[in-house]
Simulated scan of single mutants.
Amino acid sequence: MPGAIWRPIPVNYNSGGISPRIVVVHLMAGTLTGTDSWFRQSRARASSHFGTGKGGTLYQWVDTRDRAWAQAGGNPYCISIENEGTTNDRLSDNQLDRCAEILAWAHRVHGIALQRADSATGHGLGHHGMGGSAWGGHTSCPGPRIVAQLDEIVARARSIANESAPSFSGGGDTGAPAFPLPTGWYFGPRSGPTASVSGYHGHRDDLRHWQSRMRERGWPLAADGRYGPRTRGVARAFQAEKRLGVDGLIGSATWRAAWESPIT
């Protein structure tokens, strides 16, 4: 990331294997210098993509194309930020700026939504504790005082990205979560560009997210994370209603419309 001091570590990460959709805020319970030293030791079995100091120093330890070891089961879809401080601290104004810059950059590079994520199935900016046991059971990290600052980070990131908080008329909802598949891919039958991912367990939660949103809009659809005849039928009918290309495939336009188009 431009502006970050590149401090690559030789251990404690996996090359590749990440599709980011959440930026996760952590608390070091220590110093930036100490954390930098710790991540370089094999016995640490831990790392983070980024780290901020109270004075505004920003380190990057792991490329965001690679998995940092910061939140266990969340590592395949999370970009992590460790922040200098101790229990019950708040982030300094400098740290808020650095976290906002990371979120705005991740939005531009990885399509991560400029919004709060409040669970492991969400999209946007979240915190370590929200992942519960699946993310290592660190439910007190980064602490309530920092969690209360997350909305401020999102607001600053939107300002950096020159984007206002989304607003839609006619019964629509707030902005859509970032589409979870690469450009040009879609949820659909096991053919075409989705052959390697359609029905793949790692994407079921994402398809379930779209199905749940469609249920909220009044469509008769089970949120089971499976692309079957019912899901295809609802997708086709929805596409026809919104004057999208009618093919029953859930690509980025059909995904966004589930949140952003008016509910009629």
Score class of each variant (00 low, 15 high):
Gly172Ser: 13
Leu32Ile: 15
Ala72His: 06
Thr35Met: 09
Arg236Ala: 13
Ser92Asn: 09
Ala157Ser: 11
Asp97Arg: 09
Ser15Val: 13
Phe50Asn: 06
Ala222Met: 07
Asp118Thr: 14
Leu207Trp: 00
His203Asp: 13
Gly34Met: 09
Val234Lys: 04
Ala223His: 11
Phe39Ala: 06
Asn94Glu: 11
Gly218Ala: 04
Gly73His: 00
Thr254Leu: 04
Ala253Glu: 14
Leu249Tyr: 04
Gly111Pro: 05
Pro166Phe: 12
Gly188Lys: 05
Ile18Tyr: 13
Pro142Met: 09
Tyr186Ala: 13
Pro177Phe: 06
Ala46Lys: 01
Ala195Gly: 09
Ile22Leu: 06
Cys78Val: 07
Gln41Lys: 08
Val197Met: 06
Ile18Asp: 10
Ser37Tyr: 13
Asp173Cys: 04
Cys141Ile: 14
Phe179Ile: 07
Pro142Ser: 11
Pro20Thr: 11
Ser169Gln: 12
Thr231His: 02
Ala72Asp: 07
Val197Lys: 02
Arg67Leu: 14
Pro193Cys: 13
Gln211Met: 09
Ala257Ser: 15
Ala104Asp: 09
Val197Glu: 03
Glu101Thr: 14
Trp219Asp: 05
Pro229Met: 12
Leu249Cys: 11
Gly126Ser: 15
Ala157Asp: 14
Arg226Val: 15
Ile22Met: 08
Ala44Asp: 08
Arg90Lys: 10
Glu241Thr: 08
Leu150Trp: 00
Gly30Asp: 12
Ala113Gln: 09
Pro262Gly: 09
Ala46Leu: 02
His107Glu: 15
His127Ser: 04
Arg67Met: 15
Arg40Ala: 08
Gly171Leu: 03
Ser19Leu: 11
Asp151His: 08
Ile250Asn: 07
Val154Asp: 04
Asp247Trp: 02
Val154Glu: 03
Glu82Pro: 01
Pro193Tyr: 14
Ile5Pro: 00
Leu91Ile: 03
Ser37Glu: 11
Arg43Lys: 04
Ser169Asn: 13
Ala70Met: 12
Gly192Ala: 06
Trp259Ser: 01
Gly251Met: 12
Trp255Asp: 02
Met214Ala: 04
Pro180Phe: 00
Ala235Gln: 05
Val62Leu: 03
Asp89Glu: 11
Phe168Gln: 13
Asp205Leu: 08
Arg256Gln: 15
Gly251Lys: 03
Ala113Asn: 08
Leu91Asn: 03
Ala104Met: 06
Asp66Ser: 14
Pro8Ala: 01
Trp259His: 03
Gly56Tyr: 02
Asp97Ser: 10
Ala258Glu: 11
Asp118Phe: 06
Trp61Arg: 04
Asn14Cys: 13
Gly124Ile: 07
Arg156Ser: 13
Thr139Cys: 04
Gly129Pro: 00
Phe168Leu: 03
Asn162Ile: 10
Ile263Asn: 15
Arg45Val: 14
Leu103Phe: 01
Thr35Lys: 07
Glu152His: 02
His26Ile: 05
Ser140Tyr: 05
Pro144Tyr: 14
Arg156Cys: 15
Tyr200Ser: 12
Phe238Glu: 10
His127Pro: 00
Gly3Arg: 07
Ala223Ile: 02
Asn14Ile: 14
Ser164His: 14
